[in-house]
């Protein structure tokens, strides 16, 4: 199982698409590691700089994250940068499934909860940790701690625990 804990990158925009996460010109790479320097290279978001992705483990964002292409290079570009968790109001279907298929978390939270995360924590030193067994996100900032419950389907949780879909499918089908 991967690790789901660390610093948080806040991306305050909806509809961040796969071309923004990793542009098509890098799809000619045949290793995941090669995608590392180009994560979010084409992201259109005032105030965002590529360096902001350094030392992050979690992304918090708005609606429809990962829309567009089916490229699993998007989760891979996150993974090789140490980001195994994206928390959003909603995801595009293929991106969301790709995350769980890779044993990573794509967690959906209600709009009000996401609003509060931005309001309370964006711009601060904050860490988040996903507790796989209790379905909770533990947030630490300013020496205080907050816990948020989330929902995850049994299938998706199994994929996270087993490290992805290939091993599971090979065993069962």
């Amino acid at each position: 199982m991967k690790t789901f804990k660390g610093n948080v990158l806040f991306l305050d925009r909806s509809d961040i698409n796969t071309d923004e996460i990793i542009p098509a010109k890098y799809l000619t790479e045949i290793t995941k590691e090669a995608l590392k320097p180009n994560l979010l290279e084409d992201l259109v978001l005032p105030g965002f700089a590529r360096a902001d992705t350094q030392d992050k483990a979690v992304i918090v964002t708005r609606e429809n994250f990962g829309c567009g292409s089916s490229r699993e290079h998007a989760p891979w570009a996150l993974e090789v940068n140490g980001i195994n968790v994206v928390i959003a109001e909603s995801f595009a279907r293929i991106f969301r499934q790709n995350m769980y298929n890779c044993g990573m978390f794509a967690i959906e939270l209600p709009k009000e909860t996401i609003d509060n995360l931005f309001l309370n924590y964006a711009g601060k030193e904050v860490t988040m940790a996903v507790d796989v067994d209790s379905n909770q996100i533990v947030i630490q900032a300013d020496g205080k701690s907050e816990t948020i419950d989330f929902k995850v389907g049994e299938f998706d949780k199994t994929l996270v625990k087993e490290g992805g879909w290939v091993g599971y499918a090979d065993k069962n089908y």
Binding site: S70, R71, E72, P75, I94, Q97, N98, N101, C102, F155, G164, W165, V166, A169, D170, Y173
Partner: peptide, 18 residues
Amino acid sequence: AGIGTTDLEVGILKGVCA
């Protein structure tokens, strides 16, 4: 349906998708 590379792998190997 469009799917990612892991689903494709399982499709190639097992002929199934979830």
